[in-house]
Nucleic acid binder design. Structure first.
Length: 485
RNA sequence: GGCCCGGUGGUCAAGCGGUUAAGACACGGCCCUUUCAAGGCUGUAACACGGGUUCGAUUCCCGUCCGGGUCACCA
């Protein structure tokens, strides 16, 4: 059995898009599920838009997601190089071949001429495409164009009247008529190959067995199949996965909010959650399982369970799933997740010392069950830091004014003062004693205390809030709220 | 507009000729917790429409409608 080889082939023209991440993921899953190889190839033939920053971003994002590749620009294998601009000699070689066989030809048409042609077709109500006129150019005419300084492109001669069949692993057989295609450009005037051309040569040379990519490429595929045939290459299997849609059901793009992987990272999503969520968009294991590790997904993955229909990106569900992962994490990991946000917001220093670290650990423990994303920690902290306290409602104020409260407060302050340090472990029994000794109901103790301390009726457990605030802040906050009852 | 791909609750998504049409998110209720969150239980809510085929269609075929993708010297 031939070794499975798949690739993710992004063009480095921007940060890794969430849709791209899903394509990468499905390729990765298929490779791992079949003990194959996952190749990363950078399609940087658009010199204008490609950048090394984007390339770096894409690689960083993939690594962050845990989708590491077996061969790539930084991991040379036997089919390199893995950046298209470093492979021009391959393309050139095949172009010569196609040209000499009459399967491709030089085209000197200008942009204006092409536009005029498209107009003409459009007026006749036909599909706007290239009319093939340069195929018939005589050597004299070519020479004249060359003299004029026109730089030609190379066009592929599309065979007429042919049905092009795409056997697609997720969609079944899809047929296009070659009539609708028109001779397309395979080498641009800057000498670099176009996408449709480079992708075929690279996939063939890199021995890619399965091309798994987004559905937007489906209508490009017939061109590529024609090229495989002209070049005499064996065709890979194709699998076109459906698109990820925004809330408005159109292809996910910038205007839909957060669309790049780094943005999710910056919001404090966990890579495991993002991967899990993305896998479930267009694929399901069949059963009721939803929270799955990458290993588990690999174990269950198969292309025939990939859905044909597009999926709307549901931020609510991602947030829920991320919350699940946060709750499942160790306290240390949660602390690690929230630290950047805490220091960014100034709650701790950029490089937390031991003292700050133990405070962060307290915060993590207090809020682990309350967070959907890491960055949310900041809004929670606003209530637990600073000297100021403001009452959230009149109802809260009323609870503060209960006649039993002054007694509660006094006893509380005395007990706190007696403790050398405040920890959840010693606060918990302290509060119990308080209700017991004062013979009061919990509601008369916990709620007013909570309000006096935070101004809110809701929040994390008091035995976490108290140590997080610390004696100093507690004293200051209580003196402020004292004025309120 | 041409070509192509889709269409099960608001969203994701099981289902692949006979089911009371799963489950998850979101939403509502109840319980738990002397708060919230989390958790448990529970409720509302779906086969786009019309024709066939069939004893029987969510499932197969055709049409309509709706949505999306694509029509570059971008990938």
């Amino acid at each position: 059995m031939e070794e499975v080889r798949v690739r993710f082939a992004p063009s480095p023209t921007g940060p890794l898009h969430i849709g791209g991440a899903r394509s990468a993921l499905f390729n990765y899953l298929f490779a791992k599920a079949n003990k194959g190889k996952f190749v990363l190839r950078i399609e940087d033939t658009d010199l204008e838009r490609s950048s090394t920053e984007s390339e770096k971003n894409i690689m960083d994002s993939l690594r962050w997601l845990g989708l590491d590749w077996d061969e790539g620009p930084d991991k040379e294998g036997q089919y390199g190089p893995y950046r298209q601009t470093q492979r021009v000699h391959f393309y050139r070689e095949y172009t010569e071949k196609l040209l000499s066989q009459g399967l491709a030809y030089h085209c000197y048409c200008t942009e204006e001429e092409l536009e005029a042609q498209r107009q003409a077709f459009a007026e006749k109500g036909e599909l706007p495409r290239y009319n093939g006129q340069c195929y018939h150019l005589t050597p004299e005419q070519k020479a004249r164009y060359e003299q004029e300084g026109r730089v030609p492109v190379v066009r592929f001669r599309v065979p007429a009247g042919q049905d092009v069949l795409i056997p697609d692993l997720v969609r079944g057989d899809v047929v296009f008529e070659s009539e609708g295609i028109g001779d397309f450009v395979i080498v641009k005037s800057d000498g670099l190959p176009t996408y449709n051309y480079a992708v075929v040569i690279d996939d063939a040379l890199m021995k890619i067995t399965h091309v798994i990519r987004a559905e937007e490429h489906l209508s490009n595929t017939p061109r590529q199949i024609l090229l495989y045939e002209a070049l005499g290459f064996a065709k890979p299997q194709f699998a076109h996965i459906s698109l990820i849609l925004g809330q408005d059901r159109s292809k996910m793009s910038k205007r839909h909010g957060s669309t790049s992987v780094v943005q999710y990272r910056e919001l404090g999503f966990l890579p495991e959650a993002v991967v899990n969520f993305l896998a479930l968009l267009g694929w399901s294991p069949g059963g009721e399982e939803e929270v799955m590790s990458l290993e588990r997904i690999i174990e269950q993955f198969s292309l025939d369970r990939v859905a044909k229909n597009p999926a709307v990106f549901d931020m609510d569900k991602l947030r829920w799933l991320n919350g699940v992962y946060i709750r499942q994490s160790s306290p240390e990991k949660v602390a690690e997740l929230i630290t950047p946000y805490l220091s960014q917001a100034g709650f701790v220093s950029g490089k937390p010392d031991e003292r700050e670290k133990s405070w962060i650990a307290l915060v993590a423990a207090a809020l682990q069950e309350h967070l959907a994303t890491g960055s949310e920690i900041v809004e929670h902290m606003l209530l637990l830091t600073g000297e100021e306290v403001s009452l959230e409602s009149a109802e809260a104020g009323a609870l503060l004014r209960e006649e039993t409260f002054p007694v509660v407060l006094k006893a509380f302050q005395e007990k706190i003062a007696a403790l050398p340090e405040l920890t959840p472990e010693n606060i918990k029994p302290l509060l119990k004693e308080l209700t017991k000794e004062l013979k009061l109901g919990g509601k008369q103790v916990y709620m007013p205390l909570r309000i006096a301390l935070t101004g809110r009726m809701h929040g994390p457990e008091l035995y976490y809030i108290i140590p997080i605030l610390g004696k100093e802040l507690i004293r200051k906050r209580l003196s402020k709220t004292a004025a309120l009852y």
